[in-house]
Design a protein around this nucleic acid. Sequence first.
DNA 1: GTCTATATTACGATAGAC
DNA 2: GTCTATCGTAATATAGAC
Lengths: 202, 202
Amino acid sequence: MARTQGSHSDITGPRVRDTALRLFARHGYAAVSMRQIAREVGVQAGALYNYTPDKQSLLFDLLKGHMDDLLAAHAAQPDAGAPLAELEQFARFHIRFHHDRPDAVFISYMELRNLTPENFEVIEGLRRSYEDRLEAILRRGVEAGVFDVAEPKIAAMAVIAMLTGVNTWFREGGRLSLPEVEEIYWDMVHRAVATSPPQHPA
Amino acid sequence: MARTQGSHSDITGPRVRDTALRLFARHGYAAVSMRQIAREVGVQAGALYNYTPDKQSLLFDLLKGHMDDLLAAHAAQPDAGAPLAELEQFARFHIRFHHDRPDAVFISYMELRNLTPENFEVIEGLRRSYEDRLEAILRRGVEAGVFDVAEPKIAAMAVIAMLTGVNTWFREGGRLSLPEVEEIYWDMVHRAVATSPPQHPA
DNA sequence: GTCTATATTACGATAGAC
DNA sequence: GTCTATCGTAATATAGAC
């Protein structure tokens, strides 16, 4: 769909980012050309460089934006109080947030290798600070005697890996709704770390 | 390192596969060129085509070989008897097997999108059959009353995601040995699914 | 089995007109 | 802000000599 000439900065900018995100997630950063992005946006390849200095910056901005969104959304959660409630809130938040933006989650895991070393360090730092928040919850729970976790750092990564895994199989309209999935995962996380596991009805 | 002319089929073949595996894992399939593989192997690019009909087949053979190895190695495990012992064996086996071949594991998760649809279906089928084995263990445990799992299929994927996550952070020579990591993860898996959780010394 | 050479296509990025 | 045109480079894969 060739675009006739004219100025469309306000609409083209977001479209470039959205299209790049979708194509990077589907085919991989290295496999997607600037020409391909331009074609789907509906402009010529040269016009993309009004919105990004180069392809690498396009990738970095998408990853950086995702991590910033994640940290901000998590920080905006209300104070849950006790460690057990904090952990439940974290688990449910993580599943919902990641469910809502599968493409951004996908490239944030898959395209780290295609970042320059400097850009990689930035994203890694943000990811670590997210992990640290869960680790802190676990440590507070251990101190309070409600969690039994010998290695909070490792347990944090294990929990995050498990929760993020929902994105690999969950499909809208399947047998289970997202709230049901939340419940199942929260139950497993709870039992994996709590001193006194939840009581189930027989 | 330019190679002088001559015949080296027996040594070059494995080197092509090993080099491709390492480079694909480090930089991604799409970002690695046949010239780059050839340079590291020590031959000219054209010579690679004595060992693979094309780049896609090289990727597919690596992934197929990895999945075949995984299923064969798992099938070769001795019969553990009861579901709880089977689950423990699965968890420890999974961690060790994946730890031993991080590059193959990495590309098996990351490069699925770069397979042709036909090749993708083959790999997916093998992966599903591995998941099915864990699901079967969980179902047997539920029947025996030793596991409390409402959704064995989902629990299987959650457990596999958690265990595979070890590869993202474990480094040889770190604070914890692999047997120690095995212990920590098995404990979490155990507590997440068992009806009566393990008793820890105070 | 490996080499050199090449056919063919595509890439990221830029220049200058409108 | 977008277009057309292009520079310089590199990609996969093949052909034919040794």
